[in-house]
Design a protein around this nucleic acid. Structure first.
Lengths: 240, 240
DNA sequence: CCCATCTTTCGTACAGGTACGCAAACTGTT
DNA sequence: AACAGTTTGCGTACCTGTACGAAAGATGGG
């Protein structure tokens, strides 16, 4: 939905060279996947996610729009890669891993902050499970901590899954709330409730979640889903 | 990003009349906001969210695309309204409100199921706090139950906020996982972990959350954020 | 009954993503 | 060097949402 308008950046040949042969064609090997991603990172930081367009990106590199498609699958492919590079800068917690609660809490909050700050990243995380290099690094680090804290491998996996779900879900809501005008109706209670999303709320929920996970690792997991799978919905094989 | 192609539906004047005057113009008052929404609901059920386009919708009504914009703000406006009508059909739990855990769990799971089933609805819930009539009804019902269960109004609000966050966030992840191919790399552990999203996982997390909320309502809320707000992030006023 | 005014429909046009396929440029073979 | 095969850049064209503004129909005052 191309609603929000762009303005500059789409200058046909500003800051670009295209000094190739007289054929008017850009040299060869001018563009590489890596250059596309690097340019995308720069453009993203300059003009923001909304203004990041294939056409703008191409003109920024002095190249025709369709030329990019020889090196990237589609726009999402670019954004995936950009997100990975940005995540690598910020995911690592400063807390001591020996204090696992502090470490996990900081890791979660760093991801939340990242997703709220970078709409592009949120877009990626909501599109599919992210398994980029830096996401892998982060997962490995967290799993290491969770394994030693909870003892059980299965418990650690469940914990990680729950944490990811909570973090990403919360970030999605927090981000969507930002820049949202309560319209006009004075239905403040409702609005306040529906938009119940803030970093401190995140911390509180995380607190509960960690407590539940810790106790859950000591309880036979069979008790966890206690009486769930309501009859009104077609039964589904309980996995895990 | 207009990737996935459409096919039919965009027949210029199939199933449409446009029997207006010789001017070729559609009568007058032919289209109303209500008809647009109703048609959108029907088309959505016929061809799915991806294929629901303004042009297709217009031709289905035998009208020019831009004519719709006199009655709806934009496409999101339509989808908001459609989502409300669909939600009204499914939100109400069958469980007895006296068993508040069962009632809340079913309400949450019904919303989760709805969001996973209807991509359009998920899109809406991720875009902004939803305050449509049926969403209001649902919230009122849940708040009623939570108030009597937790006693405190503030606790009920926190509980509702946490439940919404968890439910919507989980649905976002579950939906994105569906129809996702693990590509080719045999990195199964990672994939399995990253995609740790299933209805039974939802139930488990919900269980923890409810337990935490119940105990939290009996604990001085000051203890909740215990030591949060890490030093590496700019401090923010703790709201509640 | 005629004209001013308001409402509604819609023609035109633009920005954005990208499928398709041609042609230029490089690579390796004989 | 000449030719075949592959890689890469990109022209063309289509689909999407929707801003803008003109024109057709309805309404009301004189």
């Amino acid at each position: 939905m191309p609603a929000r308008k762009a303005a500059a950046v789409t200058r046909p040949a500003a800051g670009s060279r295209r000094q190739g042969g007289p054929s008017g064609r850009t040299p060869w090997g001018t563009i590489s996947r890596d250059q596309v991603i690097a340019t995308a990172v720069r453009v993203l930081e300059e003009v923001g996610f909304e203004q990041l367009t294939i056409r703008g990106l191409a003109s920024e590199m002095g190249v025709a729009p369709m030329s990019l498609y020889r090196h990237v699958r589609d726009k999402d492919d670019i954004i995936d890669e950009v997100t990975d590079r940005l995540l690598a800068r910020v995911w690592a917690p400063a807390a001591d891993p020996s204090d696992w609660r502090a470490y996990i809490a900081e890791a979660a909050d760093r991801l939340r902050d990242f997703l709220v700050t970078e709409p592009a990243a949120l877009h990626v995380y909501l599109s599919h499970p992210v398994m980029s290099p830096s996401a892998r690094d982060r997962m490995d680090a967290m799993m290491e901590v969770l394994r030693t804290a909870l003892g059980d491998e299965q418990a650690a996996r469940r914990a990680y899954g729950a944490l990811q779900t909570y973090t990403i879900g919360f970030a999605a809501l927090e981000a969507s709330r930002a820049g949202w005008a309560p319209s006009e109706d004075g239905d403040e209670l409702a609005v306040q409730l529906a938009a119940y999303t803030s970093p401190s709320q995140f911390a509180r929920g995380l607190h509960y979640l960690l407590a539940g996970l810790e106790s859950g690792s000591r309880t036979p997991p069979a008790a966890a889903g206690g009486g769930q799978t309501p009859c009104w919905r077609r039964t589904e094989a309980m996995d895990s």
